[in-house]
């Protein structure tokens, strides 16, 4: 039982980490909460379902295409909705409300286009799985764990060594200073939407393979991805990944004590606790987002 919960926790954590890290990439350079980030994964998952069941394209084409669509989706959302709002000097709270509206829009659009029922993508049969220490793990779950590990290594190398990665860190540290050294911050913000959304697209694919697809999944994903990011510190990408695993494990061990329906509530209770006690998260730096206590 313990090992099964551990494995379930790690797999859930991996998927949350995909959402949380993309969310963090967007947050660090844009400094607002992009709630519709979960919808990017939903759109990607439905696109995968649509293209897989209508066209006989080979898988090595279908998966990259889905990620590309997710990246394009993120880019367009930023270009058409957020950028005009930013140009109006809207506060981050306005952008947050706009992103909530976007999330509601796309969740309902998916329901309108594909119906409210749960879609099952049967690319790979689930099978019984391999037994390790009395716990079962399916091949897809092993793939998820490996893909996520590789991605995080790549992400770390990208932000440490590539030019764009360094620029992104510069913009997130001090946008004003970055601007004075000639960095085009809007271009960097575009790139973070593209990269973050591409990762969300990958999340969409893996979720479609591991679970089923339904219109409201984006909302639930976002709750968990966002919580993970806050636990770890929204301004820190490694932090949000650690936060995701903390959340995944807490949720899965939590159902030892609570009915499974409370699973998502656990996320929000953790979120509330962290927002109150340590809003900057485990790894974040306190940037003075809290009022002094009156």
């Amino acid at each position: 039982m313990f090992f099964q919960l551990l494995i379930n926790g790690l797999i859930a954590g991996s998927i949350y980490a995909l959402i949380a890290s993309g969310f963090s990439i967007i947050y660090t350079t844009n400094k607002f909460v992009h709630f519709a980030h979960g919808s990017t994964a939903t759109v990607a998952a439905y696109f995968l379902y649509w293209i897989f069941s209508n066209f006989g394209l080979p898988l090595y084409l279908v998966f990259p295409l889905t990620i590309l669509i997710a990246a394009l989706f993120g880019f367009l959302v930023h270009l058409l909705i957020y950028l005009p709002l930013k140009k109006r000097k809207s506060s981050s709270v306005i952008l947050l409300i706009a992103s909530l509206a976007l999330m509601a829009f796309f969740d309902n659009l998916m329901q309108l286009l594909f119906g409210a029922d749960v879609k099952i993508l049967s690319i790979f049969p689930h099978g019984k799985g391999i037994e390790i220490l009395g716990a079962y793990i399916t091949p897809i779950q092993i793939v998820i764990l490996i893909v996520v590990l590789l991605l995080f290594f790549g992400l770390w190398a990208f932000s440490k060594y590539s030019k764009l990665g360094k620029i992104m860190r510069a913009v997130s540290d001090n946008p004003e200073l970055a601007k004075t050294t000639g960095i085009n911050s809007i271009r960097v913000q575009h790139w973070s939407f593209v990269i973050g959304s591409a990762i969300a697209g990958l999340a969409g694919i893996l979720i479609a393979l591991e679970h089923n697809i339904e219109p409201a999944m984006g909302t639930h994903l976002m709750i968990q991805g966002f919580t993970a990011a806050v636990i770890g510190g929204v301004t820190s990408i490694p932090g949000s990944i650690v936060g995701a695993y903390v959340l995944g494990l807490t949720e899965n061990f939590g159902i030892w004590f609570l009915p499974s329906g409370y699973k998502s509530a656990i996320a929000f209770v953790l979120l509330l606790i962290f927002l109150i006690i340590r809003p900057q998260g485990i790894f974040g730096i306190n940037q003075g987002n809290r009022d002094q206590k009156m």
Partner: peptide, 10 residues
């Protein structure tokens, strides 16, 4: 003790 984004998310 929260304000801005943090308050709305809490």
């Amino acid at each position: 003790r929260l304000k801005g984004d943090y308050l709305s998310l809490a």
